[in-house]
């Protein structure tokens, strides 16, 4: 298997989109383009994990082929880093499972192998996760309710940069916030290998009003196309995508 570029969207929100198309639908669209959509839902202290507004978080990740996690803002740094790592592994395991099916037949998944063989395969997945190039569009919800959480989001993104830049593979990040001025998203930081520079440019104020999560995911998806320098992992494989879903 060739080491390619993994493309991920990381959405950080406190839930409740209220404008434009269904975010789960646009997430599915992104997934079809080979971009996994991962979601971190930030909880308020009076919210429990069962709050209805946050069901959306899980739904988006499910249709986006990504990972989701709910978290209180204090634990955001660890979560952002963990979710990104899991997202990479999940995407890669999807590919590996597909390969396994081709070799061993339709009913074979990683779970069906005995732990010894499985260990060897998982080691390969881990290797790929470490060495693949990674492109992440980070999409930050800056609607009014996020106001007092933005500081933690900034810290978490700097921390993510520390983690990912320790990898052997190359990274590129871009940060967008939503809603934008007269647009669904607003560029915060253009494609860059280091997120440290975010300190100076990160929005300190929220943009208020609507939460157009669906349109924002759609726009985020196009950001990958804008710099089509690197080959996608799924290049030329679009027809098989249904099989990778789990």
């Amino acid at each position: 298997m060739k080491t390619g570029t993994l493309r991920q969207i990381l959405l950080i929100t406190d839930g409740c989109s209220n404008h434009g198309e269904d975010p789960a639908a646009t997430a599915a669209l992104a997934y079809q383009q080979g971009i996994a959509v991962n979601v971190i839902g930030i909880l308020d202290h009076d919210e429990t994990e069962e709050s209805s507004g946050l069901q959306e978080v899980e739904d988006i990740a499910l249709s986006g082929g990504g990972v989701s996690q709910l978290v209180y803002s204090e634990a955001l740094s660890q979560t952002v880093q963990m979710v990104t790592k899991q997202a990479v592994n999940q995407t890669l395991q999807g590919f590996v499972n597909k390969e396994l099916k081709q070799i061993l037949g339709e009913n074979h998944r990683l779970e069906d192998l005995d732990p010894e063989k499985r260990g060897e395969i998982i080691e390969v997945v881990e290797d790929l996760g470490e060495t693949s190039d990674l492109e992440v569009v980070i999409l930050v919800d800056t609607s009014a309710s996020m106001h007092h959480k933005l500081h933690m989001v900034k810290e978490a993104l700097i921390d993510l940069s520390i983690s990912l830049n320790a990898r052997i593979g190359k990274n590129r990040f871009a940060i967008y916030s939503f809603p934008g001025k007269r647009k669904s998203i607003q560029k915060v930081l253009d494609w860059t290998p280091k997120l440290e520079s975010v300190s100076s440019v990160f929005p300190k104020i929220t943009s208020g009003g609507i939460t157009p999560t669906g349109p924002a995911i759609r726009e985020a998806m196009y950001q990958f196309g804008k710099k089509s320098l690197l080959r996608s992992f799924r290049h030329g494989n679009e027809s098989d995508i249904e099989e990778t879903g789990f």
């Binding site: 921390d159 520390i162 990912l164």
Partner: peptide
């Protein structure tokens, strides 16, 4: 040479801004 697999903030030099998370 790889990236640290698991860490705990308080003991992590990256968290303190005193180094990378490279093993």
């Amino acid at each position: 040479g790889r990236s640290i697999k698991e860490y705990t903030d308080f003991y992590d030099r990256g968290y303190w801004g005193l180094g990378s998370r490279r093993a």
